[in-house]
Design a protein around this nucleic acid. Sequence first.
DNA 1: CGTCATTTTGAGGTATTTCAACGAAGGTGG
DNA 2: CCACCTTCGTTGAAATACCTCAAAATGACG
Lengths: 196, 196
Amino acid sequence: MRVFPARTDVYTAGTPADSLFIISEGVVKSFRDLPSGRRRIAAFFFARDLFGLARAGRYVNTVQTLTPVRVDQLSFDALTELFEKDPGLELQFLCKTIHVLRETQHHNIIMGRRDAVGRLAMLLRLLQTQDGPADGHPDVPIPMTKSDIANYLGLSLEAVVRASRRLERQGIVEFVGRHHARIIDRQRFEALASNV
Amino acid sequence: MRVFPARTDVYTAGTPADSLFIISEGVVKSFRDLPSGRRRIAAFFFARDLFGLARAGRYVNTVQTLTPVRVDQLSFDALTELFEKDPGLELQFLCKTIHVLRETQHHNIIMGRRDAVGRLAMLLRLLQTQDGPADGHPDVPIPMTKSDIANYLGLSLEAVVRASRRLERQGIVEFVGRHHARIIDRQRFEALASNV
DNA sequence: CGTCATTTTGAGGTATTTCAACGAAGGTGG
DNA sequence: CCACCTTCGTTGAAATACCTCAAAATGACG
């Protein structure tokens, strides 16, 4: 069990991978900086999410905390040992990997939309359901910056800002401070966040 | 082992899932039709790829063959049995699932690009590396239609056509017939297909 | 050889990107 | 505790790229 303050690196892209991580509490972003200077956020991970899957022995993304985070760090050595003792454990990891796959597919669906407002709405709904099992809670915590949101949605920062404004002007969502939103008109919000 | 002719459904979205599939030979597309009438292709699968992962007991996408296809169909019943006999098998599935995850992440990277030409180049490179281990083969088979490509890249059909034309006019790629391309200028092609 | 799906091309509309400049917030150090 | 400073957010105007609509050409298939 390790603890990280907000805005610190858990690991850096390209470094040799030796562990998997499972979030106990907090939120992280997984991203890569491209040669052009653009940053692409591949995923946000929340409590109980698995991250650290490597390719060719190295981490492909940098993972950075957005909030204070507690993670279970599982070294590969320890894992192979655990797998031998308890074969059922592999199934656990398979399930968690499939969950990551589903989230990535959902990200794909978001990116497939051509309208900025729709993409933003889908991210907000993701954060909403992530918040708690209490489905339909109108208050949505937004742990990341708008710049992060832009990099996740594949939009420019300005486009995210304008989409936020439009959601407000239309009375669908209200942004209070930088890290909270409130769903005003659930009906129209769900209509927007539907998979077109 | 089952065999499907080209352009036939392997299974339909929403039907109860009872099997996983591993492609022995051929190419399939995995897609969903949205209420708006749009079609989103989530992935193309090739030899040795795994597909059929379900959510809540039902297939989420429709899978249709692009070419004649041979698949190994593994019913869940048979799988649980096999897993008990050979725990190492689970690891095989974990690896294949991670491979699907990587492909999905790659798709995300493609969709993150804003230029149609760049997206098309990345798909062509995917098909190129898929073709054979002979990396750098200039001839690229294109088993899907341009309409499929559009639905995969999140572009309109016309945008795909114009991107193809531009690649030709610039002497980077040559399209011969509907199902083959040839890389003319490898240098500039790789530059385009890089993760900008 | 005819029919149908697919592809191609053109013209106009629209959304996002870019560029630039300003305002606000949060963190740091004195 | 305040001032500074860096990052983040906001707004406007112009350019670009893609989308949509419409019509014609090409190719596949029976």
